[in-house]
Write a protein that binds this DNA or RNA. Structure first.
Length: 429
RNA sequence: GGAGAGAUGGCCGAGCGGUCGAAGGCGCACGCCUGGAAAGUGUGUAGGCGGGAAACCGUCUCGCGGGUUCGAAUCCCGCUCUCUCCGCCA
């Protein structure tokens, strides 16, 4: 959520940020609403101050035993009740209206975010590794002989429908090993604290990180009102909702491995083959809570943490910075890491690392207390480290051999009982 | 799922329908005292919103939301959460 005072101070900058996002300017309407709101608040509080004074005087009259004065004051106060209630209601209504309006406006891009309408304007920051030269036509993950029957889409369709998968045998083991490897690396080498969270949350949590109110159709809700998290960014970030954290405790660097649930509304027909885009998937998430001045440095640090996983796995990737038109709602700057998928012959997103500045913190009232003692909103960042299912795909496609087997990254051996490959018949060896 | 108890400031803990944003204690900050410390002692010590250049003023907040009343931390209703006991259970 945007700070209405910042908007008031510099409406032009606010509108410029919206325009960079491809949205029409809105400051004029918001400022008019804010002005009406403040006038209503002032009227309401003035009336209330008056009522408080009358009540105080009535109390004094009663204490003094002046029945006539008490009755006069009581009657006068009683006569004003409806007007005060109406003034209060109007102030509350306008205050809520302004908040509602602000809640659906996306974060402002930072100055160093490239402008552009869509992904075509994203800017590549760097590449790591070089795609392997195959002496055969590399297959997509679901066509690799070693995976025959182990990525079981028909079984998943029977149980649940499209965009689900049943994993079997070596595929499951590799999937599990990848998640464990990521977590262990983040904890032992990157200093992140491992957290385990619920995946069913209250609407407030979804609102805090920005999924609600605008993107309800992207997620699932239970019959009693809980939401299934689309990412553990929701739970990890909301851990600090409503809190005031001692500045000395920052930064908080967390990681969690959870199930994620997405309706994939609007992605009909996209990535329907294989397990690239699923309704239910696993992700190792990273979230950092820090002071606003350190957020950009933390974003680079988190990006490095995600890249380290790919480097250890020997998977070629490129890192890009998203342009203004391609960024998510809550982000003010986003790095996407795209891994090379030989089967598709292109780089595909496997991680997204965003700094949200104080945008989410303002929504969830998450603050820290600095050395001067004043509470200030924290900065929040989130990033995948990494999407487990997509990493599985990348390992399979990059490691596939002409004979149908898959050569696995040596770094995974400790999590695979020493195995270094999957035989063409699907056995780990 | 059933029964009961509870929720007050950073923490503990008082609080009669009225001058209570709230006693007292702890903690913390800054003084005094001291050669320095401890002890002692003095002062201060929540946040949101609105107004104001500021000082400051107003308003709201005693889990959350309503209600009664001239006036609610205090009375009434609903909700949430916590604890205890019973039941069930991976």
């Amino acid at each position: 959520m945007h700070d209405i005072r910042a908007l008031r101070d510099d409406p032009a900058a606010f509108d410029a940020a919206l325009v960079r996002r491809g949205l029409p300017p809105q400051s004029a309407g918001l400022l008019a609403l804010d002005e009406a709101r403040r006038a209503a608040i002032h009227a309401s509080e003035t009336a209330q101050a008056d009522a408080n004074r009358l009540a105080r005087e009535a109390g004094e009259a009663k204490k003094a035993g002046d029945a006539a004065a008490f009755e006069r004051l009581r009657a006068e106060a009683a006569a004003r009740k409806d007007a005060i209630a109406a003034a209060r209601a109007e102030a509350d209504r306008l205050d809520a209206a302004l908040r509602d309006a602000l809640m659906v406006i996306p974060n402002a891009p930072l100055a160093d975010v490239p402008d552009g309408p869509d992904e075509s304007a994203n800017v590549e920051l760097r590449r790591w590794g070089s795609p392997r030269a195959f002496d055969f036509a590399p297959r997509e993950h679901f066509d690799i002989p070693a995976m025959r029957g182990l990525l079981d889409f028909p079984a998943a369709a029977k149980l649940s429908g499209a965009r689900f998968v049943v994993l079997r045998g070596a595929a499951t083991r590799l999937h599990r090993a990848l998640a464990q490897f990521m977590l262990d690396t983040h904890v032992a080498e990157h200093g992140l604290t491992e957290i385990w969270t619920p995946v069913l949350v209250r609407p407030e949590a979804m609102t805090g990180t920005g999924q609600l109110p605008k993107f309800a159709e992207d997620s699932y809700q239970t019959t009693n009102g809980w939401w299934l998290v689309p990412t553990s960014e929701v739970t990890l970030t909301n851990l600090v909702a409503g809190e005031t954290i001692d500045a000395a405790a920052l930064p908080l660097r967390m990681t969690a491995h959870t199930q994620c649930f997405r309706s994939e509304a609007g992605s009909a027909g996209k990535d329907v083959a294989g397990m690239l885009r699923q309704h239910q998937f696993e992700k190792v998430e990273m979230v950092t809570i820090c002071t606003p001045d350190t957020a950009r440095a933390e974003q680079d640090r988190m990006t490095a943490c995600a890249e380290a996983i790919l480097q250890k796995l020997g998977l070629p990737y490129r890192t890009i910075v998203l342009c203004t038109g391609d960024m998510g709602f809550s982000a003010e700057r986003t790095h996407d890491i795209e891994v090379w998928l030989p089967g598709q012959g292109r780089y595909r997103e496997i991680s997204s690392v965003s700094t949200c500045g104080q945008f989410q913190a303002r929504r969830m009232n998450a603050r820290y207390r600095g050395p001067d003692g004043r509470p200030e909103f924290v900065a929040t960042l989130n990033g995948s480290g990494l999407a487990v299912g997509r990493t599985l795909i990348a390992v399979l496609e990059n490691g596939q051999e002409a004979d149908g087997s898959v050569t696995l990254p040596p770094v995974l051996a400790p999590w695979l009982g020493g195995a270094t490959r999957i035989e063409p018949d699907g056995r780990l060896a």
